[in-house]
Structures are given as structure tokens and as C-alpha cells.
Design a protein around this nucleic acid. Structure first.
Lengths: 225, 225
DNA sequence: CCCGGATGTTGCCAGTGTCAACATAGGGTA
DNA sequence: TACCCTATGTTGACACTGGCAACATCCGGG
């Protein structure tokens, strides 16, 4: 069997996932199987990585047949896309929270970057489902596209605020946001891929990256380059 | 069947891969099966994506049994790791070439960034094998680690030169290189994942990212931040 | 009360990676 | 030259996967 395992995920408490509260006398119809399937898939991904997700196993874990899933998802791919969608929703929530709680200012922007990488590092396998090419790039699910766009929009909004406050360069906001996204995304991927193995290397790089990133896009005295 | 396809790869001419020059009278022993397997796996990855790699199919393509591979690789995973290793080697070569041909100066640094993203965009599936979690992060193959380290070292060397020339900040070179790596890696991943769909978006972002990156790490008048 | 759509199950199939047992090649040695 | 030993390639299984078709059961609206 091919494992291609990713490191056993850490705790993160992002989804309650009360692991299918089944009563003893099992009704033929599961109350909310779609939700339970999603939670179970997510739990499996966290515990065993993406390759550990098996229709039979998550069915068995829920005390349900292996093909019950097909009443709620078209495919295994559809299930993974739903997982990815949920990941983007959670990511957006955490980004927005960091921005708001940080005071919607310069420091809050830094907090967003930290929150982004923290999410990826805390849920590496989930993050991989979102960005690892498991979802069809063309003709993607509209809900997924919307949720992914929403997460990105959180970044755009924050940058727009900073830009109007004169803290950040007067460049195209979307372009600038893409640059910022690329930076944190890159740091996150390197961290996940185990390229930064020494203890503290991730934090060190993240801190440095954010510092240099801000230096790169701050509203300067001279218009830069 | 689960496809999870990545877009059909483009040409790139990085490996001759003369597609198994089999003579008509087939000898029982293939001349250099290991090499042929690697080439064929790479070709398959380029044509059909990582999921298209099937031991049976690449065996069939080479006119060889499905398990012949096990005399040269321990696993399917080992084959993919070898593919990844080769990818890092090619990447390093292209980075070094860009640096040398660009004159080992400020412009050459920019050329390296372009070469990096160009490699990823030209070989998306191959790039995914290198960074998509297909290789075991812990206890990785020493040859793979060496080759990956070599590619990174090309960046470190270039940055060290720029640093000693006073073009770039006097920060820790490895840390700075990791930041640069994260930026180009992030741009490459966004490009591959289809997040930048409008024509020219990749080039636009790449140009902007490199411009802002250089602004962020150039040796400034004031010590930055 | 009953019946029809929604939901879950079982049987089955092709396809996959992998191992054990076997077959062949071809060069070094007697 | 004859032999044989190891590297190399093959065949036959096996357990596992995703997915379809046909069947079973539930449950709410007429």
C-alpha cells in the first residue's frame, strides 16, 4: 500500500466535530450524514493524512455503509472539495478575527500573516487538500470558488484599509494582496514540507518575512525602484 | 476512477527522454531500465499528472512487466522520490544558468526568480511531486535531500554575493534566502493552482513580487523596519 | 392508510500496489 | 568450453480501492 504520509496532525480545535453522536438503537436514517461525513473526513485527514481517506473507512467509522456517501456527494473528489471549501471558510474566519482583534491597523496586518501560517501549520493535511491540486482547477465548484475568494478578500480588504490610511503603497490592491498571499503561502508551504526543521525556524522565517514584506510594500518616501 | 487531474503539462525540453529506444528484437534484459523507468514516469507525470502514474501503465509503455520496477526501486514512493530528486537537479541547473548568464549581479537575481517560476509553470505536475507532500518529510532519501539542498544553495550563493557587494541587506544569508524562496515558491504555487487565471496575471504578479521583494531586502539608507 | 421519493445496503467489477515463486540471461570461474 | 550464480524480469496471486446497479428501508404528505 502506498502511504505517502504527512506528519500526524496537531490539535487545533477549529471544528467541534463531536464524532457522530450515535444513539445505541441505530436508526436506519442517519440524522445528518452529510455533516457527519465531512467531519469524519476531516478527522481522518488530520489523523492519517489525505491518503488515509477511504470511503470504506470513513463509512465504517460512522457505522454506515461504504457507499452511503454517494447519496450526499457525487464523488470522493466532491467530498474532498467540500473539505477544502470548509477549510477556506475556517481560514477566512481566522484571518478576519486576527484583523479585527488586532485593531485593524498595522499590527493587525502582521497578526493576519501569523494567523495564516498558524492555520497551515496546525492543519497541514487540510491545507494540502486546499492547495495540493486535489480540487479541479478548471470548472471548480462555485461554492469552493466563493469561499476561497472570500478568504482572499479578507486580505484585500485589510490592505485596502492600510492603503487608504497611507500606511501602504498606493499600488493596485489586488496585486499587492496577491503578493502578500504568495509570501505567507510560500512560508506555509515550506513549513509544511519540512524544509524548516530546526526548532523555531518557522517562527524565525515568518517574523523575518513579515518584517521584510512590510518594508517592501510600505508607503515610502521615495516611490521605490 | 479518481483523477484529480492537473492541467496537461506543456513542453519544456528539460529532459531528452527519448522514450525508450527499443530495438525490434527485444532482449530479456533491458539495457538501462532504471533510467527508462524514470524517464517514462516523468513523461507520464507531464502528460497525465501524478495520478496517472501507474506501475502497470509505465511498465506497459516500456514493454516490460508491471513488477519489473521492483528490481530498481523499493516502492512506487521511491520512484516518485527519484523523480523529485531529478526535478531538484534540473531546477538547480536552471537557477544557476540564469544567475551566470545574467551576469551574477542585480539583474541576474531577478532572472533567477523568473527562472524558478518558469520551471514550476512549465512542469506543474513535476513541481507538485517535489513539493506536494509525495515525499516523506521525515527520514527522506539522502540523495533527495542533497539535491534539494543544492537547489536552495544556488539561491544562498547568489544572495551572499549580492550581500557582499552591498546590494542587499546585511542579514543572515540563509534566512534571507528562505524568504526569497518563500516568495517565488508562493507565486509558483498560486500560478499552478489556477488562482491566477486571467492571461498575464502570473507574469504581472511575478514582476511585482520581484520588484517589491528587492525593495524589501535591498541595503537601505536606514536600517529598515 | 399508503405510496413514492429520499436515504442506506449489498453484490459486484475493474483497477491498484505489492509480495512470493518462478524463469531467464549472461558474465566470471573452473 | 562448460557451468553456475546472481542480477534481472515474469507470472500468479492477494487485499484493497472507487464506483455502479439493484435492492431494502424509512418516513412524510396525499
Amino acid at each position: 500500500m502506498l502511504t505517502l504520509s504527512t506528519p500526524r496532525a496537531y490539535l487545533d480545535g477549529m471544528t467541534p466535530s463531536k464524532r457522530a453522536p450515535r444513539q445505541s438503537r441505530r436508526p436506519y436514517h442517519h440524522g445528518n450524514l452529510r455533516r457527519a461525513l465531512l467531519d469524519e473526513a476531516l478527522a481522518t485527514i488530520r489523523e492519517e493524512g489525505v491518503d488515509g481517506v477511504t470511503l470504506r473507512e470513513i463509512g465504517a467509522r460512522l457505522g454506515v455503509s461504504r457507499t452511503a456517501l454517494y447519496r450526499h456527494f457525487a464523488d470522493k473528489r466532491a467530498l474532498l472539495m467540500a473539505v477544502a471549501t470548509e477549510g477556506f471558510r475556517t481560514l477566512r474566519e481566522q484571518l478576519v478575527a486576527a484583523w479585527e482583534e488586532g485593531g485593524r491597523g498595522d499590527a493587525a496586518f502582521e497578526a493576519m500573516g501569523v494567523a495564516y501560517v498558524r492555520f497551515a501549520v496546525a492543519n497541514p493535511s487540510h491545507y494540502r487538500v486546499m492547495f495540493g491540486g486535489f480540487v479541479d482547477p478548471v470548472a471548480r465548484d462555485p461554492e469552493l470558488a466563493a469561499e476561497a475568494g472570500g478568504a482572499f478578500q479578507a486580505l484585500v480588504d485589510a490592505l485596502a484599509t492600510l492603503r487608504h490610511a497611507g500606511i501602504v503603497r498606493d499600488d493596485d490592491t489586488v496585486l499587492m494582496a496577491r503578493f502578500v498571499w504568495a509570501v505567507v503561502h510560500g512560508v506555509a508551504m515550506l513549513a509544511i514540507d519540512g524544509q524548516l526543521r530546526e526548532p523555531g525556524a518557522v517562527d524565525e522565517l515568518l517574523r523575518y518575512a513579515i518584517e521584510r514584506l512590510r518594508a517592501g510594500i510600505r508607503a515610502g518616501i521615495r516611490a521605490g525602484r
